[in-house]
Amino acid sequence: MAWRDFKKRFKRQMSDMLEIPSDIIMDLPKIVLVGDLQLFIENHRGIVEYTAENVRVNVGDYEVAVSGEELILRNILPDEICLEGRIKSLQFVR
């Protein structure tokens, strides 16, 4: 466990130092929110739950939970999800 934490910290420092975006080096999700209308999640690991009110998306270490109304999945690609609807909240669930 200690070794893994060390690796993580090292990667972060490297990305800070070399100014490389951390989503590339550390394999983190990149989430873009357009108002409350659209949500793009890049680098996801699959959908955990999908209903019109709640969407949970696995992004590796944790889940992104979105709640709102009339949510639809505009499209799904292997590494990108586009969500549309009236978004109310966005949570990271560990």
Binding site: G46, I47, Y50, A52, L73, R74, N75, I76, P78
Partner: peptide, 13 residues
Amino acid sequence: AASRGIYLWDIRR
């Protein structure tokens, strides 16, 4: 479907 590269859109519950 997504992992096999099948393109789905306008998914509605």
